[in-house]
Every structure is written in structure tokens, then in C-alpha cells.
Amino acid sequence: MNSIEGLRGTPRLRPPFPAQAGVYGRPTTVNNAETLCNVPHILKNGVAWYRSMGTEKSPGTKIFSVSGHVNRPGNFEIELGKLTFRELIYDLCGGVPGHRQVKAFHPGGSSAPLLSGDQLDTKIDYESIAAAGSMLGSGGLIVMDDTVDLTWAALNLAKFYHHESCGKCTPCREGSGWMVDLLDHLHHQRGSARDVEMVGQIAKNLMNGKCFCLLGDSLGMSVGSAVQKFPGDFSAHVAQPNMGRT
């Protein structure tokens, strides 16, 4: 909305909510193409028809954009609550190249906390993914096989978020840069156990509304989950377990 008004692209404080006062102070709704795509079908076939798909709490369908280590990446519209991630990855996407194992996956975009390979049987609907400790989010499924080093993956992600950080709020602006520095350090075998611990703490300090918008939260959630779920990947990078820093 700021960009449309020719202002610097940063999130706006709510209230007022866009539906009350958005672009140029007029009521505005912001939707993505996927949401709007549903509208004609619902109008045509009725709410009951839409609700006949999916589950009680997750009605309808959802388009998943699958990327990463799968044989057939792409967009798949699936009915919610019907498939598991295993089915999505192995049946629809043709499995993992080289028959390697799924090590971890972001079920709903890079901002959704990582799930590990042993959670592949989670059902794909809002409530099941939440119960597994992540979120359905944007439906951007990112699959990583067992060759992936999560320190590298986290660094890659942190770099993305740091680049995307608009600089408006303190935790995201400063924390994302620090995160990159630390992960880069670790990745190059220069970090300490304390650095790993700090990555986890910074992740926590970015989460739960501490940032102005969800961007910082997202970084916190994904990197945080990586450290939490795959501590080994990080400690493997520690040069000397204790470099004697206080």
C-alpha cells in the first residue's frame, strides 16, 4: 500500500486496518491471486460445495508449490485433510531424487518452522500441521534431503530474510544481520558452541510479535526450528567446542 502511494515500502501500523483505511486512506483489501481464484468457483457452486471438500476446520483446497529435492516440483492443488506430506511428495511429486531420504521440510513456505523427515505422515490441513509444530502458511513446501547441511540452509535463509528486511523495526533489522554473521561464521568453521546457542536465542528474540511484522518472526521460526531439530548439524561446524570466550 505504501508503494502504491509512492512511499517507502514498509509495513503499516494497525489499526487502522486496511479494510478501514488503506491505500490513500480508503478501505482496501489485499488478497493474493490464489484466494481470489477460489471466489468464482465458490460463487458458482456454492459454499456447501466448497465445504464438502477438506475438513471441518480446513475446508476446501489449497495449492502447494513444491520445490527442493523432489523429482517433480510444481504446483499441486489438493483437497485439505486428505493427503499426508509423504503422499504429496512421493505420489504427486515423484519422490526424492536418487531415492534419498527426506531430512527436513518447510511445510508452508520458508517461514514455517521445519518439520523433520519422521513427520512426513502429518496430514495436510491447518490443524494437523499446527499440531506437528509448524504451519500451513503459504503452501510453499520446501523439501530437503539428507545431503543438506542445515547450517548452510539456515544461512541461506537468513541471508534471504536479511535482504528482505525493510529496516523498520529493531529486532528484524539488526537481528537478521547478526544471524547472517553468526551462521556464516559457523558455516566457515569459525564458530563456537556459544554461537550455536546464540543463534537459538536470537531466533527466540525475533519471534512472537517482537518484530513489527511477520518477516522477522518468520526468520526466527525457521532458523529456530532448524537449531532445535537438528542441533547436530550446527555443532558439527563448531571449530573448537569452547573457544574460551566468556
Binding site: 536479511h162 535482504h163 528486511s165 525493510c166 529496516g167 544481520g177
Partner: peptide, 10 residues
Amino acid sequence: LDFASRGKFT
């Protein structure tokens, strides 16, 4: 007056 650049380089 405004900010220029993004992230920590704001």
C-alpha cells in the same frame, strides 16, 4: 526526509 536502503543498512 526518509530512510534509504534496507535492513541494517537503512
